[in-house]
């Protein structure tokens, strides 16, 4: 935006009295006063939130907790991790036991409206896919006509796969099995030549196969499972903090700012980079933080690509390709509004 225009806009904003919204509940102030971020995570999901050999929490979702702590408190270690089961996770957030839920939870309308929660964004675009064995010529889910597919009983995956085959006029031979372990065993043993669950799950299950290198996970994604951090709906200020920490990590990747280039970024002459690191403007202050909140988050955990590759991507055991979670400009759909 040209400077004259920007000045005009700010003047109008001032006349209308559009200052920072008063928060319904003061989560930000409470976190600052407490000096610790209470972050809800899973009870153990490899790559996302799990305890490592030293007993410390690690993973994609854990790094998001660290990024928020670094942005808000200036220290990524000031996090109290609260492991939560699927059934207790939202109630723990509603009851104020945690400040933010960072636990592979799918964003749906019902969860926001009925539970009074808000998803602050999408950190991981998951979705249902297929893993194929013994079918070297299959390169697309549309070529699965007549293939026997294993799926866990009682999951949405079972309904989705039936819909998908019907919509594409393919014959489905579905084998429904009680547990996830049964499904991967059946695939390995030859009872079926394909299995289906969410993509992130397929990469985890692949490691359990006798010869993981022979399995092909098809690039097709046939359902939407957007995962992201959740806050209470009555605290817009805190919601914005969490939302923009996520956007900051994505914008950092797009701008070429990483943990190893943070110092270089501080000296950059590019306006976008200068605003990001807080050398120009007062974006952080408007959020109720300080100018350096974004670069602190990047220094703590790296940009989105670094967080992804380290925990679930190319530098991890899971090796999940970026896929949908690649930047919008690089082959994926990851998109963060600009920081200005």
């Amino acid at each position: 935006m040209p400077n004259a225009l920007r000045a005009g806009f700010l003047a109008i904003a001032a006349i209308l009295g559009l200052g920072p919204l008063a928060a319904g509940a003061q989560t930000l102030a409470a976190v600052k006063a407490r000096g610790t971020l209470n972050c809800g995570v899973s009870q153990g999901l490899a790559g996302f939130s799990d305890r490592n050999a030293q007993g410390a929490w690690a993973g994609f979702d854990v790094d998001f907790c660290k990024a928020v702590a670094a942005a808000v408190l200036g220290d990524p270690t000031k996090v109290a991790y609260v492991p939560l089961s699927a059934t207790e996770r939202f109630e723990a957030l509603r009851a104020g036991r945690i400040d933010v839920l960072s636990r592979n939870s799918t964003w749906t309308l019902e969860r926001e409206v009925a539970l009074g929660l808000m998803f602050a964004g999408i950190t991981f675009h998951d979705g249902q896919g297929f893993m194929v064995l013994r079918r070297p010529n299959v390169t697309s889910a549309l070529e699965l006509d007549g293939v026997t597919v294993c799926v866990q009983a009682g999951t949405t995956s079972a309904d989705n796969v039936a819909d998908y085959f019907r919509a594409n006029s393919m014959k489905l031979q579905l084998v429904t099995l009680p547990t996830a372990a049964d499904v991967v065993q059946a695939l390995d043993g030859g009872r079926c030549d394909a299995m289906t669950t969410d993509q992130s799950g397929l990469y985890a299950e692949r490691l359990k196969l006798a010869r993981p290198g022979e399995a092909v996970i098809l690039p097709d994604v046939i359902s939407k499972e957007p995962l992201g951090p959740v806050t209470r709906a009555d605290d817009l200020q805190w919601f914005n903090v969490v939302k923009w920490v996520n956007f900051a990590l994505v914008n950092a990747e797009e701008l070429g700012i990483s943990a190893s280039t943070a110092d270089e970024a501080m000296r950059s002459a590019k306006p976008d980079v200068r605003r990001f690191v807080g050398a120009e403007g007062d974006l952080g202050v408007k959020l109720g933080l300080d100018a350096a909140f974004a670069i602190r988050a990047v220094r703590a955990v790296g940009n989105y690509a670094e967080v992804y590759e380290r925990n679930v991507g190319a530098r991890s055991r899971l090796g999940i390709p970026r896929g949908l979670n690649q930047l919008w400009s690089m082959g994926g759909i990851l998109y963060a509004p600009p920081m200005r």
Binding site: P321, G323, G331
Partner: peptide, 24 residues
């Protein structure tokens, strides 16, 4: 043959014609 650097099919949105090589 194994790991992230093994040749594999991936999701990749692109406006480039089929057959194009893209290097990141």
């Amino acid at each position: 043959r194994e790991g992230a650097f093994a040749r594999q099919l991936v999701f990749f949105r692109s406006t480039e014609p089929v057959g194009t090589l893209v290097i990141h």
